[in-house]
Write a protein that binds this DNA or RNA. Structure first.
Lengths: 340, 340
DNA sequence: ATAGTTTGTGGGATCGGTCCCATCAACGGC
DNA sequence: GCCGTTGATGGGACCGATCCCACAAACTAT
């Protein structure tokens, strides 16, 4: 292994001077700089990141802990984070809770133990008190995505769930739908709560309330869409539209419709939320509310970088807007249904 | 920050003894062990990973460099890797080339600079010579997934592309299809080449050759399936089945079929490769060849762990098998077509 | 009783950088 | 001619662990 001492010997200077050249600070004469750069190139010197981190107390690693990095949604966030920090010379360490509170806690502590310069967190539920304590004690800057489950986050990036859900409902209401089922995601999760508020707002604009529609709550998973769809279609067929709280839920509902021999949107209109990768390939292509997922990661990373540059930077907050992606799964309510 | 010195003062022992307790090696009396463990708990001591790594030359971090971690496919591999290394107390650092050779090279060098104990690599193309040199010099154990593009990999995990493609073609041939189009992925990539060999093998079993079918090569992307599908359907309609080298290509082809007002599988049968998440939600659900993607990552990680435990462990190799997932996109060729 | 082994403990060098401080030359101002 | 400032350089303490070595006590074997 080539060390800074090898370089300084070859260049005939002191370790301090080499360090200055590598770090790019302090005074160094042009001649020595050239000689040192040459020696570095000749020897293929690459500074030991641990020695550097140990002394300077900065690792240039940032950590990301997500609910579950195995899903496309969180993978895309990771992607956004990584692209944003790469130019700053930071590396990314990732970990995930895989929907297990224990593993999640360990994942966060892992980041602290690795002395990450900062952490991007996307959690679904409040953090354990002991983990909060560890994070607080370590004084690591934390940026939360989605709902902020760490009370001392210096910055947050949120998604405009309220406006997104309101838009989705408006689409259905504008087409004339009044008998609507909302297949919400887990209503103990902040995002789902915000979306429900958005649904409520849209309803009130046409003089309706949540009581006038059917709301079901379940996992953010296709299995929920399928089971809820089966149960629903067996019980009643008078609804004309479904708002699915996530595209995967919509996908599950599509399967239930298929099983029942019904067509989207002729028999029931469907609108989703997320604009997942697969939604464009569904048949018919799903009309949905797009989340700029990569943007969430990117903005979180940028906030973190800002915090790293100036730890006193005030609380940073941003809200990522959603966008309607109008495809083919929504139509006017069928006459048959209206009569029924 | 609590250091080992704080602990040793509180427990009234030397740093060496504390170190022994933390590492769990060497001789320590039961009484002192208890006292030290108590002191550690009281103070909330957590060893500094950099100091440790600097001195011991082991970081307990393993690196993963993929073609593009933003896609579900690679995200699932990462997931498999992470689950496998977590129990061993290793952390995961990820980076990605995002289909850019420069970024890929930098990503690999980044892992070396961070002194990862080992690296899991999933590359599409041969590695740059200078990167090979750096990896070799660092003597880091490397496990390659897919085609091995690093000549000194100590272990590899491959997918049985050949058998998978042969199975796919057999499904079509067994149904009686003879006029087939193969929409291959990029034929400069090893996986695609292996699959082409599998196609060839299946054809030869019924006395046909590659010349008897139409083969097109393009990106592993839905846009290729769409554009190729459009061109194909405009030019000729006498083929009865399509084998898509990836499910996303199949998805693109579905769209072309839709545009042309044709139905799957009544007008054209389609079989895919991968069993991507969205394939079950396509309409009709796509018959395809399943890759156990997470398994690729898991086995790679296990090989790496074995290599870390015993650097002399012989070349490790494994082949992950594929599996036919029979859904609804393949049928017997329509009479109309056979006549045409 | 003596030599040899096992068990237990502390001292201190070391890993490879960073960074503070001391030193010194050159230069300009008064 | 002296002082202060700026530019340039090296010396060496230090970050927080690990780990080798020396040493001591306790025990075992001869």
């Amino acid at each position: 292994m080539v060390t800074i001492t090898d370089v300084c010997k070859r260049a005939g200077v002191s370790r301090s001077t080499v360090s200055r050249v590598v770090a790019g600070n302090g005074y160094v004469s042009e001649a020595k700089r050239k000689a040192i750069e040459q020696a570095i190139a000749d020897l293929g010197y690459r500074p030991n990141s641990f020695a550097r981190a140990l002394r300077s107390n900065r690792s240039n690693v940032i950590g990301a802990v997500m609910v579950d990095i195995g899903t496309p949604y969180f993978a895309e966030i990771i992607y956004g984070v990584q692209r944003a920090i790469r130019p700053a010379g930071k590396s990314l360490m990732v970990s995930s809770g895989y929907a297990d509170q224990d593993m999640e806690a360990r994942a966060i502590v892992e980041m602290v133990d690795r002395s990450c310069d900062g952490i991007v967190l996307y959690l679904e539920r409040p953090m354990r008190p002991e983990v909060v304590e560890i994070l607080k004690k370590a004084a690591v800057p934390v940026v939360s995505i989605g709902h902020n489950h760490y009370p001392f986050s210096r910055a947050t990036v949120g998604l405009d769930n309220f406006e997104g859900a309101r838009t989705a409902m408006r689409v259905l209401l504008d087409q004339g739908h009044r008998s609507i089922v909302y297949l919400s995601g887990d209503l103990t999760i902040g995002d789902a709560i915000d979306r429900l508020r958005g649904v409520e707002a849209a309803l009130s604009e046409v003089g309706m309330s949540l009581d006038d529609i059917e709301v079901q709550s379940g996992l953010f998973h296709d299995s929920f869409g399928l089971s809820a769809g089966r149960e629903l279609l067996a019980r009643r067929r008078d609804f004309t539209a479904v708002f699915a709280g996530a595209d995967v839920i919509a996908a599950g509902f599509y399967m239930a419709m298929r099983e029942a021999g019904l067509r989207v949107p002729q028999d029931v209109s469907v609108i989703g939320f997320d604009d997942s990768y697969h939604s464009q390939f569904m048949s018919p292509p799903l009309t949905t509310i797009r989340q700029e997922v990569g943007e969430l990661g990117k903005q979180a990373a940028q906030h973190l970088l800002a915090l790293l540059a100036d730890p006193m930077a005030g609380p940073l907050q941003s809200l990522v807007r959603t966008r309607l992606v109008d495809r083919s799964s929504v139509a006017v309510p069928s006459l048959v249904k209206e009569v029924a």
